[in-house]
């Protein structure tokens, strides 16, 4: 068996409201918020980036799990906003949690699903007996061109999962659904991503998430009503609600993991932060379906059962962290993001 042994998360304390962004660009905040089901998003401080967020999340995972970091044999950091184009974020994390030098480490990029791809690698390495613990992190300080539709959602945050043999939540099965679908991209050397607008919906997000979810449920022999919770990638607050409905999940199953309306889309952090919010409240025996989505495109689906071990485990309390927030105006947000070049 393979399980989540511990987890950690970090979301910067600053927020910007959709209405503040809309004010600058002369748009109707109410219709944007209603259209996207997003009201505010997290903003990294001037000295925060993907590496600092990854380290904060990783440290919490190590601390809460009471893990000896030297026993972590692999660290994968999934992001599309690594601070360096060449030089791994994973080595910074490894050093900052004291896991070096006896481990393997690498950075992953697969749009918003690079973190869950790292989880699958850790599962495989633990299963094969190559490592005792593996750490997978999904994190982003999401990029969006000023004035672009993405700017209303592109947020900052990340989550770290430590995978091992036994833990607080068993991973019963994982499958992926992957095709070459150019719905969203960022070319080498370009600061902002481009996207296919409405093309990001049906042939991209919905097709991949639904296919991966169905594939997984078919493989393990489950139906939507067998799950207590479900979390789907959250590019906005509307897509995950719609995909849940299409698959046959009700609102109650997804509401606890739905963070996009209050923090925005944390790209590689999105599905994993949703899973953190669920693990924060889940009870032993409860079953969770988690399906990520990365443009380009692919989805990783996980079937998870919470174990008795969660009772004695010190949980993250992500929602308490999210409640400690401070709003900034658009100019401060741009300064924090380093947009004045």
């Amino acid at each position: 068996m393979v399980a989540i042994v511990s987890y950690g998360a970090y979301v910067p304390k600053y927020r910007i409201k959709v209405e503040e962004i809309a004010r600058v660009w002369g748009r109707q905040a109410k219709s944007i918020s209603a259209g996207l089901n997003v009201f505010e998003k997290s903003v990294p401080s001037i000295d925060e980036d993907t590496a600092t967020i990854a380290v904060e999340a990783a440290r919490k995972a190590v601390e809460h799990g009471g893990i000896n970091a030297k026993e972590i044999g692999a660290i994968y950091v999934g992001s599309e906003s690594h601070p360096y184009a060449v030089k791994p974020t994973a080595t910074i994390v490894a050093e900052a949690i004291g896991a070096t030098p006896d481990l393997t480490a690498a950075d992953y990029e697969f749009a918003c699903k690079a973190g869950t791809a790292g989880m699958q690698n850790c599962i495989a390495l633990v299963n094969s007996g190559m490592i005792k613990y593996g750490m997978a992190i999904g994190v982003d300080v999401a990029q969006a061109a000023p004035g672009d539709a993405l700017e209303y959602t592109a947020a900052a945050g990340g989550a770290a999962f430590i995978i091992g043999r036994e833990g607080i939540a068993e991973i019963n099965e994982t499958v992926s659904f992957t095709t070459d679908t150019p719905d969203f991209w960022r070319r080498e050397g370009q600061p902002y991503p481009g996207h296919g607008e409405r093309f990001t919906g049906e042939p991209a997000y919905f097709r991949h998430i639904m296919s991966a979810a169905k594939l997984l449920m078919e493989k393990v022999g489950t139906k939507p009503s067998d799950y207590d919770y479900a979390v789907f990638h959250q590019p906005n607050g509307k897509f995950p609600v719609r995909v849940a409905k299409k698959l046959g999940f009700d609102k109650k199953q997804i509401e606890d993991g739905l963070l996009c309306p209050i923090i925005g889309n944390t790209y590689s952090g999105s599905t994993m932060l949703g899973l953190v919010a669920i693990l924060d409240i889940a009870k032993p025996g409860q079953r969770i379906l988690a399906v990520s989505y990365g443009s380009g495109a692919g989805s990783d689906a996980f079937d998870i059962t919470v174990t008795d071990k969660i009772e004695g485990y010190e949980r993250m309390k992500l929602k308490e962290m999210l409640n400690k927030k401070e709003y900034v105006d658009y100019a401060t947000y741009m300064k924090f993001r380093g947009e004045f070049r």
Partner: peptide, 8 residues
Amino acid sequence: VKACFRRI
């Protein structure tokens, strides 16, 4: 106060 990890 408690230490945190930041870009210097």
